[in-house]
């Protein structure tokens, strides 16, 4: 276990219990919560754990504020989309799409890193915002390649299609279809990537990143080339975000600007990092799980509260499902107020 978690234990019983509950819930989601929507929510949590962890590698561990993260996420999605759409639903084209997407992401990350990491943090953030916006416009304009604003649906390899049946008989009452296999592909890759990220931040390289985050001059005075380390961190983070995009593309079998490049996704990532706790990868798990559940079930919960309080003045209107974003905002403000270091930071104290 020590080796698996790279010696980075949750260091709080409550946190360990919550993490185990999330792991258990995600590992057995198809059997515990049957149905299309719960499985979709579980898959989205898996993908966002990777995406948020990769962003935390930048923001929480290296102190780099970037708004280009959805661009790398989008490159992963479009890489798979273009490859599968153009060359057919086989594993070979898919692998090609993933490799091409990773290459494009790493080259772009390196270019942004080398060009911008020498400037002050706020300018770097602005440059990443500009590059991400330019990429979103490009993806929209190159409609012959990307499907433009409508995006593109495509077929995935046969074993990942909903029509595929692995077993003739249901297992624990659940038919083992390509959709379930697809979910377990997303879950296992997300788990491996998360453990890999844990390994990175707890390695000597990760320690240097944390030192740079605290004081880059001191790190330089110890002999570390800050630009090189920051560039490597940017590339690693971009690579992970790209793979998260690949997972989402395989799960949705659709890639479009709204599901990959939207600035709203960037805001969601930021909120998840802050809610979970910056500089703790376990924060990515808590933040992604909590935020995705709230996004998907807060409306349902509010509809029930609204119905239950039908006779009381004002309350039904206050808890009307249409006001779910207002309550999500209130929950965010409360979580930042009570857990300024994030939920994981608070639980670890």
């Amino acid at each position: 276990m020590n080796s698996l978690l790279s010696g980075d234990f949750p260091r709080s019983r409550l946190l360990a219990a919550i993490l185990l509950a999330i792991l258990f819930g995600l590992a057995f989601a198809p059997f515990l919560f049957p149905g299309a929507q719960p499985l979709n929510v579980a898959a989205k949590i898996c993908v966002f754990v990777v995406l948020v962890a990769s962003y935390d590698l930048l923001l929480g561990y290296t102190g780099i504020v970037s708004f280009a993260h959805t661009m790398f996420y989008g490159i992963g999605g479009y890489g798979v989309s273009i490859a599968l759409y153009s060359f057919g639903p086989e594993w070979g084209p898919m692998a090609l799409g993933i490799i091409a997407a990773l290459a494009v992401s790493v080259v772009l990350a390196l270019m942004i890193g080398l060009l911008s990491l020498r400037v002050r943090a706020i300018f770097f953030a602005m440059i990443t915002l500009a590059v991400a916006s330019a990429f979103a416009v490009l993806a929209s304009q190159l409609s012959w390649l990307t499907g433009g604003e409508d995006g593109r649906s495509y077929r995935v390899p046969e074993v990942l299609r909903p029509g595929f049946r692995l077993l003739e008989e249901p297992l624990f009452g659940v038919a083992i279809t390509g959709k379930i296999l697809s979910y377990y592909l997303v879950f296992s890759v997300a788990l491996v990537l998360f453990l890999l990220a844990l390994r990175i931040v707890n390695s000597p390289f990760g320690r240097v990143l944390q030192a740079i985050r605290e004081n880059d001059f001191r790190a330089e005075a110890l002999g570390y080339r800050v630009v090189v380390y920051r560039s490597i961190a940017t590339c690693l983070s971009a690579g992970m975000a790209t793979l998260a995009g690949v997972l989402m593309a395989l799960w949705l079998r659709y890639t479009g600007p709204d599901t990959t490049l939207s600035f709203a996704i960037m805001i969601d990532i930021l909120l998840m990092v802050v809610i979970g706790g910056m500089g703790t990868l376990y924060g990515a798990v808590i933040g992604a799980a909590l935020f995705t559940l709230a996004q998907n079930y807060l409306q349902v919960l509010m509809a029930q509260v609204s119905e239950a309080t039908a006779g009381i003045p004002l309350l039904p209107q206050l808890f009307h499902p249409d006001r779910w974003l207002l309550w999500l905002g209130v929950l965010f403000v409360l979580s930042v107020y009570f857990f300024p270091t994030g939920i994981v930071g608070r639980l670890r104290r």
């Binding site: 000597p204 944390q210 004081n215 001191r218 110890l222 080339r225 500089g279």
Partner: peptide, 29 residues
């Protein structure tokens, strides 16, 4: 970094340590 690698160690004023890292990690760095 080249000056540090050449063999000059620098202790800045105001206790220039890395507060989030452990004592061990500070030394290993």
């Amino acid at each position: 970094p080249d000056i540090a690698q050449a063999g000059i160690a620098y202790v800045p004023e105001n206790m220039g340590i890395f507060a989030d890292l452990t004592v061990r990690e500070n030394l290993i760095l």
